[in-house]
Amino acid sequence: MVEPTVRLRDAAVTFGARTLWGGLDLDVAPGEFLAVLGPNGGGKTTLLKVLLGLQPLSRGRGEVCGQRPHRGSAAVGYVPQQNAFDRDVALRGRDLVRLGLDGHRWGLRRPAHGAREAVDRAIAEVGATDYADAPLGMLSGGEQQRLRIAQALLGDPEVLLCDEPLLSLDLHRQQSISALIDERRRRANTSVLFVTHEINPILPMVDRVLYLVGRRWAIGTPDEVLTTERLSALYGTDIDVLRVRGRIVVIGTPDAPHGEADGGHHHHPSGDDHTHEPSEVTR
């Protein structure tokens, strides 16, 4: 039996009287692409912080590659949200990537020996060699995001955590970045947990969906979770799920940023079909 790279059992995170999510049981297999969806404030980024060792669980237990989550784990790569650099930033692309070795708060501290070769390999892997020596502020959002992915891949991680990596990118660059991450997970059997508001660009890649809504959560294939009945039960209100020309559009969710112009979500493709509301949580 293949051991999961990520395992959570009866996991919960609470802040005072507020429970973000609780009773969460999750196994992520090597090479699996898991999309993490849900409204703003639902705990998606907090889940990544738990796996990065930055946020302790309030209850339950978690493991990443057989160990308790901890800072600087070589098993974990992290791609943060896209924030464009100012045009006058003098830092070069390769300098950003190297921070993953010797100073980035998510990364590893390694001796300088072999560092340049490791940085060059990571830059080549994401197809950024041609502009690696250019100032970051002169690069496009997509080019900057490729370099962030290179930084995340420096430690050759078994798990890649991506926090809204497509934010502020146009459709072409969204598809390019998504394909890059998918190619890596297929080639290296890397597990991917991909937090996003825009599921349609990754529809062909997704194996399962974890949907977090307040204290409730659901996990399964997109066809199991992203239905009118399931999401209406999760939100406790009427939600409509439409399938239009190969896209999934969710209409009626409380926070419009999850959707297109109509205020919906979008989503697609494998795993346990499960909806859960904890019976014992702090209110």
Rank of each mutant, 00 (worst) to 15 (best):
T5R: 15
V6F: 05
V6Q: 06
D10Y: 04
A12E: 10
F15G: 03
L20Q: 05
D25S: 02
V36H: 07
S58E: 13
H70G: 14
V76R: 02
Q81A: 07
R87H: 13
L91M: 15
R92Q: 14
R92A: 11
G93T: 02
R94A: 14
D95M: 07
R98P: 05
G100K: 04
G100R: 03
H104F: 14
W106G: 11
G107F: 00
P111V: 09
E117Y: 03
E117F: 03
V119E: 03
V119I: 10
A132L: 02
G141D: 11
G141E: 12
Q145S: 15
Q145D: 12
E164V: 06
L166M: 14
D170K: 12
H172W: 15
R173N: 15
A188V: 13
I199K: 10
M205S: 15
V213Y: 00
G214F: 01
G220S: 07
T221D: 13
P222W: 07
E224M: 03
V225T: 09
T237Y: 00
V241Q: 01
L242M: 07
L242K: 03
R243Q: 04
R243D: 08
V249A: 07
H258P: 02
H266S: 13
H267S: 13
H274F: 14
H276T: 01
T282G: 08
